[in-house]
């Protein structure tokens, strides 16, 4: 019995996603006293078996498919499913990437396995038999726990699991599987891959978000917010009012019809706190409101409120952070 991970490489390297899924697989397999098998495509994958061992794999299965194109899952789906059928692992894990999300349900179907997508955590139940999988439902309002006994495919949300802290083993057993390529014309074709060209930290992933609203008064003062965000390692966004005014690009709009963010720290500068805005930041851990008006509704939802003209307060805050960092 084994736990199987499909390791998708990022630009030919073992990236963060693969490390996380292998780390998660390792902790589950240890509890279940099972091996971690890691499937990887030949080519770059064949060069990385040592790293995969360090990341937590006991055994690496290098799948050779002549026509495999890593970004086109259909080109190696059959080979992968065949490999899994031979092993029948209790659990098959994919990272929740575009490729993983395409492969997982197809593999599950071919093996008649169950599937739970977008898992946030995975652990073994106290009885040592069931695997408990947590995933968000109702738009993240509720976490549901699913219990799997056997034959389960899952996808794991990126950044939900942790890579191993210490290398596991440098010399995993390596097996090669030669698969016959699927005949016929490929049904899909990757036309091109667009990289999003957004500089700095992505809003949706930022741990700290500093946002400005209508009360900022113009585009120039956003430089001040950029500086604050930079010091905190965060990103800058704004209310729709700031976007409508042309002070920020539409990609920086935060709220129900903009980006929904859930940082550890959300700083709302000169934003009144409309429901459309606040519903987009409701999952933030700490919300700080900076507003000149003590009656501003933002103070009903903020954990910390600063009643002050932001033009007075933010420069002082920036100086304080700078001097604290200098110590």
């Amino acid at each position: 019995m084994a736990v199987l991970v499909f390791a998708e490489l990022e630009n030919g390297k073992v990236g963060r996603n693969a490390l996380e899924v292998l780390g998660g697989a390792r902790s589950v397999a240890d509890k279940l006293k099972m091996e971690v098998l890691c499937c990887v495509l030949d080519g770059d994958g064949g060069q990385r078996t040592g790293e995969l061992g360090q990341a937590g794999a006991d055994r690496v299965i290098v799948v050779k498919v002549a026509t495999a194109n890593p970004s086109d899952p259909e080109s190696y789906l059959a080979a992968l499913a065949e490999t899994c059928t031979g092993i029948r692992p209790v659990l098959i894990m994919f990272a929740g990437t575009p490729v993983g999300r395409q492969l997982a349900p197809r593999v599950a179907h071919r093996l008649s396995y169950g599937i739970v997508t977008d898992c946030l955590s995975i652990r073994v139940a106290d009885d040592g038999r069931e695997i408990l999988l947590t995933r968000p439902i109702y738009g993240g309002k509720v976490h549901a726990v699913f219990a799997a006994r056997e034959g389960q495919v899952i996808t794991v949300r990126p950044r939900a699991l942790r890579p191993l802290e210490h290398p596991y083993r440098a010399d995993p057993q390596v097996d090669y599987v030669e698969a016959t390529p699927r005949g016929g014309q490929p049904r899909t074709r990757v036309v091109e891959v667009h990289k999003e060209t957004e500089s700095g930290v992505k809003l949706e992933e930022a741990k700290v978000v500093v946002a400005g609203g209508r009360g900022i008064g113009g585009p120039e003062p956003f430089a001040m917010l950029e500086e604050l965000a930079g010091l905190l390692g965060g990103a800058v966004g704004g209310s729709r009012a700031a976007v409508d005014a042309g002070w920020l690009p539409a990609t920086r709009q935060i709220g129900l019809t903009g980006k929904i963010v859930s940082p550890d720290l959300y700083v709302a500068v000169a934003i009144s706190g409309s429901s459309q805005h606040m519903a987009g930041v409701a999952n933030s851990r700490v919300i700080v409101g900076i507003n000149i008006d003590p009656e501003a509704p933002i103070f009903h939802s903020a954990h910390l409120g600063v009643v002050e003209d932001y033009r007075e307060f933010v420069p002082v805050l920036i100086e304080k952070i700078k001097s604290a960092k200098a110590c």
């Binding site: 109702y138 738009g139 129900l256 019809t257 519903a279």
Partner: peptide, 18 residues
């Protein structure tokens, strides 16, 4: 765009995540 609205209707009985 409607996912958080419908989810909130189920979870909170209002569309505003309140």
């Amino acid at each position: 765009h409607l996912d958080p609205i419908i989810s909130s209707l189920y979870a909170n009985g209002n569309p505003w995540s309140g």
